[in-house]
Simulated scan of single mutants.
Amino acid sequence: MPNHYRYIIFYKPYGVLSQFTQETPKHTTLKHYIDIPDVYPVGRLDWDSEGLLLLTNNGQLQHRLANPKFGHQRTYWVQVERIPNEDAINKLQRGVKIQDYRTRPAQVRLLSESPQLPERDPPIRFRKNVPTAWLEMTLTEGKNRQVRRMTAAVGFPTLRLVRVSICNLNLDNLQLGQWRDLTVSELELLHNLPKTN
Rank of each mutant, 00 (worst) to 15 (best):
N129I: 07
A153N: 12
Q107Y: 05
L111S: 02
R160P: 09
S114C: 08
T132S: 14
T158D: 03
T132N: 11
G155W: 09
L139S: 08
R148H: 09
R120V: 00
L139E: 14
A152T: 14
P122S: 05
V108E: 00
P115V: 04
V108P: 00
P123D: 09
V154P: 03
M150P: 08
P157I: 15
P122D: 09
D121A: 07
W134M: 10
M137Q: 06
E141A: 11
V154A: 12
T132P: 08
R120M: 03
S112V: 08
A152G: 14
S114F: 07
M150N: 13
R145V: 07
L159D: 07
L117V: 04
E113Q: 05
V108M: 00
F126H: 11
T138V: 07
G142R: 07
R148C: 09
G142W: 12
V108L: 01
W134S: 04
P118F: 15
E136I: 02
R120G: 00
A152K: 15
Q116L: 14
T158E: 10
T132A: 12
F126E: 07
K143V: 08
D121Q: 02
Q107E: 12
A152V: 15
R120K: 03
G142H: 10
I124M: 01
T138S: 02
D121H: 05
A152F: 15
T151E: 09
P118R: 07
M137C: 10
A153P: 14
R109M: 02
T151H: 04
T140G: 01
T158I: 06
I124N: 00
R145Q: 10
F126L: 09
P123N: 03
E136V: 01
F126V: 04
I124P: 01
R125M: 15
Q146G: 04
V147M: 13
L117K: 01
A152E: 13
I124K: 00
E119S: 08
L159P: 11
R145Y: 11
P122A: 07
R145S: 06
Q146T: 00
P115G: 08
A153S: 14
S112Y: 10
I124D: 00
N129E: 10
T151L: 10
R127G: 02
R127S: 01
W134L: 04
V147C: 13
N144T: 12
M150F: 15
Q146W: 02
E141I: 15
P122M: 02
R148S: 08
W134K: 08
F126G: 06
L111A: 03
Q116E: 12
E136H: 01
T132I: 13
T151K: 04
P115R: 10
T132C: 05
W134C: 00
L110I: 01
P122I: 05
M137H: 04
S112Q: 13
P123E: 06
F126Q: 09
A153F: 13
P122V: 07
T158L: 10
T132W: 07
T138D: 03
D121S: 09
M150Y: 04
E141R: 11
M137Y: 02
W134A: 02
P157E: 10
L139M: 12
A133P: 03
A152H: 14
G155I: 06
Q107T: 09
A153M: 13
R160W: 05
K143F: 07
R120D: 00
R127T: 01
T140H: 03
P118W: 09
E113P: 03
R149P: 08
E141P: 14
P123K: 01
L110H: 01
M150L: 13
P157H: 15
Q107G: 05
T140Y: 00
G142M: 09
